[in-house]
Each structure stands twice: as structure tokens, then as C-alpha cells.
Design a protein around this nucleic acid. Structure first.
Lengths: 350, 350
DNA sequence: GTGAAAGCGCTAACAG
DNA sequence: CTGTTAGCGCTTTCAC
């Protein structure tokens, strides 16, 4: 905080005018002063390198120009890409981002939001941990600009930008069935309170039911660690061995995707013939570099544009801040199915 | 900023005491009030959900509890991992991070720092774009707590946490020579103003000179895009074809590493026999998941602990804030050479 | 054109 | 134990 402690008053004295005039200068109200004083003020400010104290400005103006960004798991590539893209989208504006990592804890999410409110943020971007989130609803009702990131909250319409789930999962299912894989499993993380995971799971189950797969719940793998992944893959292999056709797995995010590929490798299974693996990939920069194409034989992915997600999120929030009464908007960002070798089952295997 | 606008005064009235008492309560000075009033204050605060206005607190206390974090390129995996790890290290503290992305522009770096100073940040973490940075030096001289992240600044001793370069590059060189690769090249990005790139380049050149390689500068590839990478690899292949032994490349960060692998694939070159590729890998999250092991045949990497880097950075800054006069510290975080298939040249090729 | 003064929400002497 | 008061650095009426 050691901003040389030079204040508006110092400048005023130095120029030989009052605080008021300096303040006016800072706020571009040049019509209230002579060209001469304006010029002199400019000089002094340049020489001294004076920076107006935003804290004091905020106290008066009731605007902090700060946006709170609460992310569920800063360790995941989704989050990195989200920070990057929202950050980029905020660039032209005067807003700064404060990042908080709730680390998948609802309690921490609550705490951070409280702390950010204390910080007087002008708005909040929340990648929430919980679908059931009355606290968030009440904040929104109190007029705090809030935009959700990818995850919905029950019983209230927020501004939100999210990845389109329905067509994405369906596209992957279509592709895998066409290639001739036998059983198809969905590999996800605990989902009770996370909306996209729920959506994806439901779409998947609906499809299996349509296909008259009995007891479809068997094919939803909820995994928290590698050991579980390995066991699930083993089970799946056993099932499909009886069919004479290999199985496939759809992973609902990049973390599970990598974990699944790693587990398959550990088990000595080769893609695409022993097993087909594909999944959502939100690794931002690395998507553009073609990471998925370089992993193992090349991974088939559902690749959404993180840049777009971030851009929409930022825009929604700025719009909400500017027009608190505007109607809520939900923006779906599509994910593109990029077919690579990991699911290109050779026809003779079918 | 719509914090329901409830202030310390509202609480005071509601409890029937003065602002002072509320303030004391907020600051834990319970010895200044009766157990009874304390209890009543607690009740009212809970009921109202009152949050003290940090802006006002900051104005008084001259502490914003905000740390500015200026990153050179938020798109790179290094940055994501750095944000994550510094963020984690700040968790227990009351400080919040404001992230600014200078996007490799020195001008933007300057602007952001000014803006953050205006924001009255209590300290700065800078992953600077320029070794030659008098502005940063003058800020430090003015008593602003500053910690550098990985990149040094000339002519001034800052607190800094950085990746150890000397032993890392040397270890990679030793390994590649042992495996029997002919020419070894270093693949880097423009480095004039970036200290680690300079260091790594110098260490590399010194080694080549020691090996009596003529005109060693030929083997430093400074690349900005994929096309250049492809051309450089072609040149290198031509050179080593004459030797009857394949060449190898050391990449100085994960971006160049991925680009190089991709280019080699494009050229139809297989690792490790046609070409050996290895490099620094700072992709944090993915390191733990073993990404490098999954790319192509598995990449040999120099893997530093991002967690450690972030932890040290945060600690250095907090220490500097607490003890402005403490002597400066430079902390080197070692990178571990992890040998994988991409450089395991089969002996018969030698 | 310019300035005096009040006040944003909070803290910290100083008095009782 | 509790309250009065004077600011923190800035913006904004209202007067001149």
C-alpha cells in the first residue's frame, strides 16, 4: 500500500489550487477549469507519478470496479481455461478480477462469496459447487449482479453461459454406435450437486433406455480416483468380452478423460481396438495446439470453445451490471465432436 | 456493490450502542464490552448478515489485503499452474489475489502495475516481461513489497522464486549424449528480455563449446510459430543424416515442447529413433496425472514442482509484507529429469 | 473558473 | 465498559 502516499491534496498544494479542481481534473471535467490550470495539473501529476487512490474513490462512488470470480476447482484445466478466457474478455474494461478457489467445498464457496461481498465487488462470476443454492438466489434477488459459469442452480433463472450437453453427448453416442462398439459407458465424477454432470448422465441414460439396455445405471462410472477407474474398466471389459466386440467410454471432462486413458494403458489395453475412449476436453490453449491429437493414438474429443464461454460470461456480467433489470439470458456454447484414432474401430473387428 | 447497504451504524442503532462498540466487536476487542452487549451484537449481525465494508476498512487501515499478480502470458500452462499454486498458498491468509495478464507486453505490464497500485495492493507478484526494468526497481526502492516469479530483473536483488536452470539443462544434455544422439538443439522462444530463456540458452551454448561444437549458435532454435519449428527440424535432420545418428531437441517450456512434438509428427518422424525430444514441462495439473507419459510414446521431461514454486512465491511476499527490511531471498526450485520413451534411443542405432 | 465543506463506512485516540 | 470525535482520500453539492 506504499503508494508513496501522495494524495490529491499534495497535488493541489503543488499546483496552487484546491482538492476540488484536482478531483475534477481526474474525472475529466475540464470545463470547470482554465486551460492553464489544466495544463499545470497535468504536469505535476506526470512528474509525481500520482495515482488516485481507488479505495477512496470506491468508498465515495460505491463502485469497486472489482469482479469476484469463484471457481470450484482451480486445479482443473477447465478452470485455468476459464480464468484465461474470462480474463481476456475483461481486458478492455476497467474491471479487475479477484479469483477465489472454493476447492469443491460449498462451505468455502459461501465464505469466499461473503469475503468478496465485503470487498464490495461489483459483480460475481460463480462456477458453483451446488445446484441447491438458496444463498446465491437470495444474493441475486438482492440485486447483486451474478453470472453462473457452466453450472446451473435450481429454482432460479440466472444469467449463465454453459456448455451444450444434449447434442454433444448424443453426437458421441451416435459415433460410437456407428463404429460398432458394444457397451458404452459414461465416466464421470460425483454429480449429485453439479448440473452439467447430471445433465450428461441423464442424456446418456435416456439413450441407453431407448436402446433397451437393461439396468443402464451399471454403465455410469462415478469415479474419484484412479483405482476405481481401473476396476470399472475391468468390469466393462468382462462384460463386452462376452459380446465379442470391444466397449467404449465417454468421459465427461478432461480430468476423467486423462485418467481413463492412463488406466487403460496401465491395463495394457490399446485404443481403439481393445477399447474406445473419448470425452470432453476443456484444456483451452492445449486444444488449439492439438494436445488431444498427440495423446496416445490421438483422442476423440468433444471440444467446446473456452474462449467463447469466457467471452459470454464476461459480457453477461457487464450487461447485468449496466442494466440490472434486463431479462436473464442463458447462452449455450456448443462442443464439437472431433473424431480421432482412439475411437476409430477398424471395421473388421465389428 | 449492492451489499444491502447495511452499515456499522445500522447495527449500532439496532443494538442500541455506538459505532465504536460495533467496530470493537468486529475487531475482536471483546474486553471493551460486556458479555451481554457482545452477545446482542452477535445476534444482530447474524440476523442481518452484515458484512463490514472492506473498502472503508482499507481506507482507514491503509491495508487492502489485496495482492496484485501480474502474469506475462495467461495462456501458457506455466501461468495457469502458477495462479493455481500461488492461489493455494494464499488460502490460509486473508489476502486476495487480483490477476492481471500483461500478455507479453511491457507497456501493458506497466499499465497494470499502475492500476494495481491505484487499487492499493499490499504487494505485487510479477512474472515480468523485461529483464531491464527500472520501474520495478524503483517501486521496490519505494518500499512496495514485490516478489518476482521465475524471471529475474537486472541490476537489483529482488525476492524471487525460480526454476533452477543450470543443473536441469545439464542433466538433459548428459542424458541425450549418453543415449548417443548426434546433434543436440535447443528450442526456445524469443529470449532477449526473459531471464530463464537466456540462462538456459547460455548454459546450453557453454556446453556445446565445451564439446567443441563449431558454430554452436546454429543449434539454438528461436521459434515463434509452427512453421519455423518444422523448418528448423528439417535442417537439423539434414545435418545429422550425414552423421548416421539421429539428433535430439531440448525444449525450454511446455509450449515449445508440444509444438516440437507436433511438428515431428507432421514430418513423419518417430521418437526416439528418428529424433529425440524432451523439454521443460510446467503444466501443473497434468503433470500429476502423467500427461507427459501419455503424449505420443511418452515424453522425457524436466519437471519442476509448480506447487513448490507457488508456495515459495507466496511465502516470500507475505514475509516481505511483514518484514519490509528483511534481506532478499532467491529460492531455486529444482526440476527433475524424468526419462521416458521419447529419448530412449535403442543402442543398436548408435 | 474555483473552493469550502460535508460525507462515503470504518477505526482509533481520547474522554469519561 | 462505553461513547465522542477526528480523520483515511476522494467526490460532490453549493456558494462565490
Amino acid at each position: 500500500m506504499s503508494n508513496k502516499n501522495i494524495t490529491i491534496l499534495d497535488i493541489a498544494k503543488s499546483v496552487g489550487v484546491s482538492k476540488t479542481t484536482i478531483s475534477r481534473y481526474l474525472n475529466g471535467k475540464y470545463e470547470y477549469m482554465s486551460a492553464d490550470t489544466r495544463e499545470r495539473i497535468k504536469k505535476v501529476i506526470e512528474v509525481t507519478g500520482f495515482q488516485p487512490n481507488k479505495i477512496a474513490q470506491s468508498l465515495k462512488s460505491q463502485k469497486s470496479m472489482l469482479i469476484g470470480f469463484v471457481i470450484a476447482d482451480i486445479e482443473s484445466p477447465f478452470s485455468s481455461a476459464a480464468i484465461k478466457s474470462v480474463g481476456n474478455a475483461m481486458l478492455g474494461t476497467d474491471y479487475n478480477l479477484i479469483i477465489a478457489n472454493s476447492d469443491n467445498s460449498f462451505e468455502r464457496e459461501q465464505e469466499y462469496i461473503q469475503s468478496l461481498l465485503g470487498q464490495q465487488v461489483d459483480g460475481l462470476i460463480v462456477n458453483t459447487v451446488k445446484m441447491n443454492n438458496p444463498a446465491l438466489i437470495s444474493l441475486a434477488n438482492n440485486g447483486l449482479p451474478i453470472v453462473l459459469l457452466d453450472r446451473f442452480v435450481n429454482d432460479y433463472k440466472f444469467d449463465i453461459s454453459y456448455f451444450e450437453n444434449d447434442r454433444s453427448v448424443t453426437a458421441a453416442m451416435n459415433h460410437l454406435e456407428e463404429m460398432g462398439y458394444s457397451h458404452i459407458a459414461l465416466c464421470t465424477q460425483p454429480h449429485e450437486e453439479i448440473s452439467p454432470r447430471n445433465f450428461r448422465r441423464e442424456i446418456f441414460l435416456k439413450r441407453l433406455k431407448k436402446n433397451r439396455v437393461e439396468n443402464p445405471e451399471r454403465f455410469v462410472f462415478v469415479e474419484e480416483d484412479e483405482e476405481l477407474t481401473i476396476n470399472n474398466i475391468k468390469r466393462l471389459m468382462d462384460l463386452s468380452n462376452k459380446e465379442g466386440k470391444p466397449p467404449a467410454i465417454i468421459c465427461t471432462n478432461s480430468v476423467t478423460l486423462l485418467r481413463t486413458v492412463k488406466a487403460a494403458r496401465t491395463l495394457g489395453l490399446r485404443m481403439p481396438d481393445d477399447i474406445g475412449i473419448c470425452g470432453f476436453d476443456e484444456w483451452g490453449w492445449a486444444s488449439e495446439l492439438g494436445l488431444a491429437g498427440m495423446i496416445d493414438v490421438g483422442l476423440t474429443t468433444l471440444t467446446p470453445s473456452m474462449q467463447e464461454l469466457g467471452k459470454h460470461t464476461a459480457e453477461l456480467l457487464l450487461r447485468r451490471i449496466k442494466r440490472p433489470e434486463a431479462s436473464k439470458k442463458e447462452i449455450a456454447v456448443p462442443a464439437q465432436l472431433v473424431v480421432r484414432n482412439s475411437t476409430r474401430l477398424k471395421k473388421e473387428n465389428t
